[in-house]
Design a protein around this nucleic acid. Structure first.
Lengths: 207, 207
DNA sequence: CCGACCGGTGAGCAAGCGCTTAGTGGCTGT
DNA sequence: ACAGCCACTAAGCGCTTGCTCACCGGTCGG
């Protein structure tokens, strides 16, 4: 799976009806570009080619729209990391795969990722708590790999929670700086970051 | 210099008069907590114990306030990195010092850092261009260290621009996740991150 | 003793916000 | 052919926003 397969891979590909999906895509673009609070419902509707009132046929509030985007995005993130963590292979293979695919997603879908990672505070308390649960699952998946690697002697990590945080942090920040006009493709960044992370955890052949 | 020295080290310690500084501190807190667009001028003035109109005696607009905060913060960041880059010692020493002090600042002043790193888009075009120039100087300082380390054989880095980006990225993201209630102190995170970065660049004794 | 000065306030303006409601036009099943 | 339905719109409501302005009270030179 590469980041250029947009048609089927888009997280909200199965959002129906068509108008609801167009509104969601418009909202993701607007939120990523200007931020949730700087985006107006008129802007979202306008990008989707509809009147402002049309938004409220498909979504109860502007916040519900953000909540749906955030939940879909976080679910995708959990899937990516859990798939890599639960795969067969050495801890190094699984860590490299986790970082590579997570980074490719953050770069390839950096608009969605930006909303998912940086607009959490705009959710109301209940919705935020829901999403925080999904984030804990991301953390758990990476920690599982690092635990295994330390146990098998592949990794040398003095502080596993700290290293987990650092690995996720490095990947997440890709959403902030990645630019489509830039020189790097998502695949290149993914490969490069997988290497950097293996060095961070002191990876070496299984002893 | 540790992160607990607040009195003299605060970036806006020399902002005068007193009321202007109180407004700035209030704005930093509010922007960091809720984001620029979600913060009202009434909120800022209220936190500073003043009426909404008082803000406009000291600042022309809400955006000017953000601009001043952003400029002061970025100047501090450039100073930290340039000081480390231009110090004596091996490339490894200078890189460790750059990462340590940069991370300590991001953790210790994580409210300021959050505004500096994540509210860039809220600046108008002219002010943003100004601040982007300062960011380039941050990049240049780190790149200088990596260049030296590769030349001297201390580091093994296949892609210097990419590694520069990754190092800064790791440090910057500290502002997003760092929490005062958390277990880690700024100094601990700084030391831990300096180690991680040295591993990332494949640091080894000078050959 | 007093007038000029100036940091600060209370009240409020125009604009823009999220969201609602009454009404419309184009499909659908019979 | 036509009634029922529903996605969608035009208009606009109530409110908050960034910002302004007429006014106030303490301080200070003469």
């Amino acid at each position: 799976m590469t980041a250029t397969e947009e048609t089927q891979d888009v997280p909200w590909g199965d959002v129906t009806p068509d108008a609801a999906r167009r509104l969601m895509v418009a909202a993701v673009e607007a939120f990523a570009e200007r931020g949730y609070h700087a985006t107006t419902t008129r802007d979202i509707a306008g990008r989707a080619g509809m009147s402002p009132a049309a938004l409220y046929i498909h979504y109860k509030t502007k916040e519900e729209l953000l909540h749906k985007i955030s939940t879909l995005g976080h679910t995708k993130a959990v899937n990516i990391l859990a798939t890599a963590a639960d795969a067969d292979g050495t801890a190094a293979d699984r860590l490299a795969q986790a970082v590579r695919s997570f980074v490719i997603w953050h770069a390839g879908h950096h608009t969605t990722a930006r909303v998912v990672q940086y607009e959490l505070d705009a959710l109301d308390a209940e919705h935020r708590a829901e999403v925080v649960q999904l984030r804990r699952q991301c953390d758990a998946a990476v920690r599982r790999i690092l635990d295994d690697g330390v146990k098998s002697g592949e990794f040398e990590v003095p502080d596993i929670p700290g290293a987990t945080l650092a690995v996720l942090s490095l990947c997440i920040d890709v959403a902030r700086w990645f630019n489509v006009q830039g020189r790097r493709t998502p695949d290149e960044v993914g490969a490069s970051y997988a290497d950097l992370v293996l060095r961070m955890v002191g990876a070496r052949p299984r002893s």
